[in-house]
Design a protein around this nucleic acid. Structure first.
Length: 121
RNA sequence: AGACCGGAUCGGGCGGUCGCGCCUCCAUGACCGGAGGCGAGGAAAGUCCGGACUCCGUAGGGCAGAGUGGCCGUUAACGGCGGCCCGUCGUGAGGCGGGGAAAGUGCCACAGAAAGCAGACGGCCGGCGCUUCGGUGUCGGUCAAGGUGAAACGGUGAGGUAAGAGCUCACCAGGUCCCGGGGUGACCCAGGAUGCUCGGCAAACCCCACUCGGAGCAAGACCAAAUAAGAGGGUUGGGCGGCCCGCCUCAAGACCCUCGGGUAUGGUCGCUGGAGCCGUCCAGUAAUGGACGGCCUAGAGGAAUGACCGUCGCCUCCUUUUGGGAGGGACAGAAUCCGGCUUACAGAUCCGGUCUGGAU
RNA sequence: GUCCCCGUCGUCUAGCUCGGCCCAGGACACCGGCCUUUCACGCCGGUAACACGGGUUCAAAUCCCGUCGGGGACG
């Protein structure tokens, strides 16, 4: 059996450097939901994901859990990442109280409307 | 059976699907890929102590500063731990606390006559004088009473006296001195003398004893790339933690500050095998130490342990004949490592012990 | 990760050195009243805090210890 294409999530598909986060924060397009802020910007070759969860969200356990859930959501269906774009998800306070499917629903609607809008333009 | 006290262990199990980090092997120019192995905690937390390790030139003496504080032991070290001593709380198992106030300085608000050392105030009594017979002046004796206050010059009783007082006596409490016995010691036990009666605060300054050089893995070492070669001012040596002594290095630069300009915040090592874990035996009351055997047990760097499903087990609620349905599952995430302390924690299990009640 | 600093009315602060006069003072804000035709200004009065928990002490905002929260520095 062969895994579906893009099910993995290696290091190359993540935003790694603080500089990159800061430049995205300056120039990227923003989209707000109730518990998250999504930043996206066109990138060279591949699509990458970065997650930011500050200490306002909670302790180390809940922050790690939010990061893992966000990564899991995009890992299950990489089509949710726009191709050749960097996407940064920033968690707002309160995101730590959500379970996986609540995070998934919220991100799914955000991603869907964004994809629709970019398709229109 | 109930109410407690002390200590220890665990922190859901099994199976599946997808996914992540590191290591080894295969393959490869490299990425990718394949197989196998390993992959959070008792507190990983707070960063409150102590070490290892690294750098600061050697880390030596003194002052200053900081810390600890019954005694003995234990340890690499400690403010930890163990045993004991004393005080205190509890019916008890047990809990909590711990140098010195007679070396000096300081403070003790309000109230109170008085707050530290002895007296004044006020009072009691006696002699003498005056007297309107109520008292009053003076000399002397004396401290028992004085609303207070956290704390008041030993306490209770009796004798004694003009009035009284350890003035005397009995008992009680404490101090000082002498001496005997036990204990490594803190200290305990017993005897004698002395009427000696002496406040609290050192988490106030301080005294005594002991300990401490400073910074910290973002320490530090190496590699690669880039650049600038500056200008002005100051100090004449410069270099540790506050200072001094002492020490090191240099002889034409060295150091500091400001301004201007620029690059960058990459990679490798440090990085996990250690005062390590488990078991048995020995020494010791114990903390702990020793011997033997076995084991290898996370090493990331915007940072890996997750998501979903099934099932079993636990708890709560609803319905209820079995049964069925719904929900819950704590505190919390390694970042150089280790020994402690402290704090958070649903629930479960085990060991030892105390009190009360019942039964025999 | 390591090392520091700070928490006082709604806000900004004084008091902390060296404990007591402090159920904590001031300013702005808020509430009520007076003044004014009304508003503002002014005057009078009031509400309101020592981050939390222990300890030392007769007595703690102050001294000691521990939690919690906030802020900062270091390549």
């Amino acid at each position: 059996m062969t895994a579906p294409v893009g099910e993995g999530f290696p290091k190359a598909a993540r935003v790694r450097r603080r500089r990159e986060y800061l430049s995205l924060g300056r120039t990227a397009r923003r989209r707000h939901t109730r518990h998250f802020v999504l930043l996206s910007e066109a990138h060279t070759s591949i699509s990458r994901l970065g997650v930011t969860v500050s200490r306002k969200v909670g302790g180390a356990v809940v922050r790690n859990h939010v990061k893992r859930c966000v990564r899991e959501f995009f890992r299950r269906d990489p089509q949710r990442l726009l191709s050749h774009h960097d996407l940064v998800v920033i968690a707002k306070p309160g995101a730590g109280d959500l379970v996986f499917h609540e995070i998934a629903n919220e991100l799914a609607t955000a991603v869907a409307s964004r994809a629709e809008r970019s398709r229109r333009s």
